[in-house]
Design a protein around this nucleic acid. Sequence first.
DNA 1: CTAGCTTCCTGATAGC
DNA 2: TGCTATCAGGAAGCTA
Length: 275
Amino acid sequence: MPELPEVETVRRILEPQLAGKTITEVNIRNPQIIAHPSSDVFISSVSGKTIKCLERRGKFLIIYMTDGNKLVIHLRMTGQILVVPPGMEEEKHTHAVFSLSDGNQIRYTDVRRFGRFWFLKNGEEDTFTGMDKLGPEPFDNCLTADYLINKLNGKNKPIKAGILDQSVVAGIGNIYADEILYHAGIFPEKKCCDLTGDEWSVLAEEIPKIMNWGITTNKITPDEYLRGKGKEYRNTPYLRAYGHTGQECSVCGNIFEHIVIGGRSSCYCPGCQRK
DNA sequence: CTAGCTTCCTGATAGC
DNA sequence: TGCTATCAGGAAGCTA
């Protein structure tokens, strides 16, 4: 479910609720979600730790502890993290519960169980999480047209697959890939090797612009987040391309079309994004 | 190395 | 109503 803008929204909501709190107890109902280390070591390692701050890298959420260790979480498709007051009824598919020093709980729910947790000691490499292979953040100054050309220009694959590659840019998912390419006016199936210099420039501009727009637009209050059980922001009526198959483009009047690219459902405007 | 397919899961929805 | 097929916003792992 969540892409960079959603993970950032969750981070901003959770950080004030968690900073300074100590994790008093860890309850893992489904050890499958713990990717590293073993579930037992994870539990004993996280217990007693005090949370310092929350950061985000691509779609990864990173909970830093005051001792320099960190808890890394990837929500994948359906993972949700909620900070709830004691006594609140537990959601279906709750796989982990962390008790906090203020009496609240961090609850992790995940219908499809694709999400993963890692616990990394201070200085331990990020090879376990794959974060070491991530490309720059969309907002990084090094994300220029030249960078994209250098990474993708020679490739014989669709540009949509190119920007979905986390080692090229971190944080873009299927939805925002469609949004970015719509705003950049690039046909999503166009081969990387066929893009013009202008198109690479527009792409380099639109990537941070659209991601930033996503963060701003999907913003909700902590209360709305809690009442929506962590998924309220998934209602995304503000998107202009994704999910608009069969509808009229407000820019050119053409009808959005649906195609499958690399097994991912894609939506584009044949008027604004010419082949 | 690359591109493409499969796999991990459950649930919502469409079609019969 | 009930059954089956298809699809879902991610990404690792495998094959050729």
